[in-house]
């Protein structure tokens, strides 16, 4: 059941992205930015946590989940250390993902070359 919920919630978020691509001609980069901001804002007003509770990875794996982690980190850190936590909490909570992406992307650039398409 857990997997079905992750599948459905994650798939539904992707459909929203697809509608934006097909209907508005938005480039993928803009959609990623919108989704991250959306995830952070929704968590700020307390609406994303329930989605995570229900969908698990279906809510955390898509990009709004990245925004959610940023906002959640900031809020938790603010509760721990006060206002300065707003400056440290977000990136602290998402450091693993960002660092992994930087490191692996760099290693990949040492190994791989772009391929022509047909």
């Amino acid at each position: 059941m857990e997997y079905v919920r992750a599948f459905v919630v994650g798939g539904a978020i992707c459909i929203i992205g697809q509608i934006l691509i097909d209907k508005t001609n938005l480039m993928s980069g803009r959609i990623l930015v919108m989704f991250v901001v959306l995830g952070a804002v929704l968590h700020g007003i307390g609406l994303y946590e329930p989605i995570v509770e229900f969908g698990g990875a279906g809510a955390t794996v898509p990009l709004p989940g990245f925004g959610y982690s940023l906002a959640k980190g900031a809020i938790q850190e603010v509760e721990k250390v006060g206002l300065r936590g707003a400056f440290t909490g977000g990136l602290k909570a998402t450091a693993a993902g960002i660092t992994a992406a930087i490191l692996f992307a760099f290693i990949a650039s040492l190994i791989f070359n772009p391929k022509a398409k047909d």
Partner: peptide
């Protein structure tokens, strides 16, 4: 994403 999280954190404070 970072800017939004900072704003959310400040508002929460």
């Amino acid at each position: 994403g970072t800017i939004t999280s900072v704003i959310v954190g400040i508002i929460h404070y």
